[in-house]
């Protein structure tokens, strides 16, 4: 297992180098640079040109990239042109809020999705199944912007129960997490349903029933545990996406996550910050995926056996 983890971490390095180069290249392709985007009309053309020269913007892409990656290996991820702060500091400042939102979001998604998916599967093609499917579709097709605002109107404005913005105080996580969670629940519910449908037809479920095991235990212990791998995979993917930032939810609830930071950075053509954000998000997601793989091993002993080889 440890060897497996070390292998994964080492594999991360080339991935991050590739990601950083691709992002560097793409940001470079987009017209405009941070000097124009940030300073716009404030500076004369000559002043901007001097700045570009000083900041090395006129060097070729490869030279700039080599310089950047060289600094990264020295532990320096560069300064944001927009915020005049180290990219690493800006990113790390946002990470706790993003993690909080992502994990609560997926938690809520799973709490909704697993029971609904299981119930759909055991009542396949009945009214209950159809109703769950409709609820799932509703959750998936409901724009999170709209759903978020309606919740704010109900819970903050009408009832006064929850704060309408920010990441402070009691209950501030509830509505953002619900918005993220409801959106993710639909896919997870469908995954749970199809995975469960496959598992409850397996012979070992019949074996369990033949032993006299209670139906609830059959479903939630014997079947669900076996159905978990696809669910965990889907949840991990959703979580990975959420770690990159949930821009709409962050905007609606003024949630200080990495998504808005990345978008703001890109709009300002703040290459250093954009590349920094994406490298760090990739690293974060990779670590997450590694955890997911480790969770697999705990859920399914066959996978665990494979890792130790």
């Amino acid at each position: 297992m440890y060897r497996y983890i070390i292998k994964r971490v080492l594999l991360l390095i080339p991935i991050l180098i590739a990601v950083s180069f691709i992002v560097f290249f793409i940001v470079d392709l987009a017209p405009g640079d941070s000097i124009d985007a940030v300073f716009g009309n404030e500076l004369s053309t000559e002043d901007k040109e001097t700045m570009r020269e000083e900041m090395g913007y006129n060097d070729s892409l490869l030279v700039r990239y080599a310089r950047y990656i060289g600094n990264v290996f020295k532990g320096d991820m560069g300064m944001s042109v927009l915020f005049k702060k180290p990219a690493l500091e800006l990113y790390l400042n946002r990470v706790p809020a993003t993690l909080k939102l992502a994990f609560w979001g997926i938690f809520i998604a799973l709490i909704i999705a697993i029971p609904l998916g299981v119930i759909s599967a055991i009542h396949q093609n009945t009214f209950i199944d159809t109703l769950s499917t409709i609820l799932g579709l509703l959750g998936m097709s409901m724009p999170s912007f709209w759903f978020g605002l309606l919740m704010i109107i109900l819970f903050s404005l009408k009832l006064g129960w929850l704060p309408s913005f920010g990441n402070e105080g009691r209950g501030s996580i509830i509505m953002p997490a619900l918005t993220v969670g409801v959106g993710q629940a639909a896919l997870l519910m469908r995954t749970t349903r199809s995975s469960m449908l496959e598992v409850i037809r397996q012979d070992y479920i019949r074996t369990a029933r033949a032993k006299g095991v209670k139906e609830g235990v059959v479903i939630y212990k014997h079947a669900l545990r076996n159905a978990l791998i696809p669910i965990i995979t889907a949840a991990g993917t959703q979580l990975g996406i959420a770690l990159g930032g949930t821009v709409v939810v962050e905007s609606v609830f003024a949630w200080p996550g990495v998504g808005k930071l990345t978008i703001d950075a890109f709009n300002a053509r703040d290459t250093t910050l954009v590349v920094g954000c994406l490298i760090l998000t990739t690293a974060l997601s990779s670590v997450l995926m590694m955890f997911i793989d480790i969770i697999y091993a705990f859920v399914d002993p066959r996978i665990k056996a494979r890792y130790s080889r």
Binding site: Q202, D203, A210
Partner: peptide, 28 residues
């Protein structure tokens, strides 16, 4: 009833299933 049936399964009547490769739960 459900609960009487459960008591019968395994105790009143038990079954050796056909395919041992699939009859056992892989995660326990």
């Amino acid at each position: 009833s459900e609960s009487d049936l459960r008591m019968m399964r395994g105790k009143g009547v038990s079954m050796i299933f056909q395919d041992p490769m699939t009859a056992l739960n892989p995660v326990f």
